[in-house]
Design a protein around this nucleic acid. Sequence first.
DNA 1: GCCACCTTACTCGGATAAGGACTGTCCGAGTCGCTAAGG
DNA 2: CCTTAGCGACTCGGACAGTCCTTATCCGAGTAAGGTGGC
Lengths: 161, 161
Amino acid sequence: MKLSSGVEWSLHCCVVLSQATTTVPAAQLAKLHGVSQTYLAKHLQALARAGLIRSVAGQDGGYLLTRAGSAISVLEVVLAVEGDEPAFRCTEIRQQGLLAAPPKAIRKRCAIARTMAAAEAAWRDSLAGVSIADLADTIDADTGGVAMPRVRSLLASPTSR
Amino acid sequence: MKLSSGVEWSLHCCVVLSQATTTVPAAQLAKLHGVSQTYLAKHLQALARAGLIRSVAGQDGGYLLTRAGSAISVLEVVLAVEGDEPAFRCTEIRQQGLLAAPPKAIRKRCAIARTMAAAEAAWRDSLAGVSIADLADTIDADTGGVAMPRVRSLLASPTSR
DNA sequence: GCCACCTTACTCGGATAAGGACTGTCCGAGTCGCTAAGG
DNA sequence: CCTTAGCGACTCGGACAGTCCTTATCCGAGTAAGGTGGC
């Protein structure tokens, strides 16, 4: 089990975008975080397809959040990048081989699949309870109120544009 | 995010092993579930390395649980197959690029990493609360008490041996 | 002075290679049970 | 009848290819802003 590195990148980018008052190009987001510009673009496109961010083409274009940071959960970002398919996929082993279960038992979902699904639901609930704004607030608090003003300052500075 | 199919196989095998009174060869476990014999062996070896099952070589050899099914959690099986590394790995993006955080902020772990870790902890807690014996009981209940006796019967029959 | 058009530069978007992990397979080393011979 | 040595077959264990997904990259289509010429 491994999460794509794009999840981390996307979450950081969403926090930055939540501080922006105008569009931010993908190239600038890449420079701010020191990651591959072209590969980050791929993940931003996934976020755009999911409707979390919106793209503006042409001069002075870039990306912006479609909603307030407080209205976007971490779960939405993770699912947009990773896909909404469950991590555990039941292949119905119980219907194969010598142990093939009688049709009567097929009424209910496989107990193992239910157990794994319950765990994944707990994971999703945990992520659904945290918003992008919460992340920004926490990061700001961790740095004594320095981080977010600095982000806004860098976004406004024309040098990195 | 995708879990290895070996997780599903291993869990089913552990349920079967919890019903066995003697060793069960890997080949038989594969036939019971209709899966690849050689590939299943790979995952069983992982379970053995984790100390969940023990291998017995030679004639009438095979695998057996090292503990009672009630003393083995689903989480242990999943971690044995998937590895105990967390799904989300923080690469410390906050220290890279133009947004490189001041050293003062490095005292605490990245807020994003903490959020992801908390969700993963919830996932693990959920899986840790279910044992192999619980799975066996649930499967048995789902089938009206037919499944587990049938497993024991097939394990005892010499035809599949 | 105002408007329309054009040029320009910048942006995203999808199509295109390289690497690594999961999936699947094979054969060899080691071990236990059975057999048979000897005491 | 009991012990013991040898044989045989069965078991696991690690080493070896195939395929899919993640990672990384590139160039082309589209678009908005700014400048320019005409009215």
